[in-house]
């Protein structure tokens, strides 16, 4: 998967969780939780959705690697590649 595809997927999934979110405003370094007002349950659902779509296992201890777009793209690129 290309970074652009991962980025698009992340935003799509967030869009499903937070339909009000202004996805176009997303910047790579922003904390997604802050930018889109995601609480713990939203974030858990986000991980569930990533798991379903990409088939990657994301241990709980790795959740913090998904907090920004930039880091999430890095993390997921590697995870998918494995």
């Amino acid at each position: 998967m290309t970074d652009a595809e991962i980025r698009a997927l992340i935003l799509e999934l967030i869009g499903e969780i937070a339909p009000e979110a202004d996805l176009a405003s997303a910047r790579d370094q922003d904390d997604l939780r802050e930018a889109f007002d995601l609480d713990s349950m939203d974030f858990a659902n986000f991980v569930v959705a990533l798991h379903d779509r990409l088939g990657v296992n994301i241990p709980e201890v790795h959740y913090n690697r998904l907090f920004t777009l930039e880091r999430a793209i890095d993390y997921l690129r590697d995870a998918v590649a494995q």
Binding site: S40, M41, A44, H51, P59, E60, V61
Partner: peptide, 17 residues
């Protein structure tokens, strides 16, 4: 919680809440 969640798929994990 860490132990409970560690070997579960995301959908079965629980939150501290």
């Amino acid at each position: 919680i860490e132990r409970f969640n560690v070997d579960k798929p995301p959908v079965e994990r629980i939150l501290p809440a």
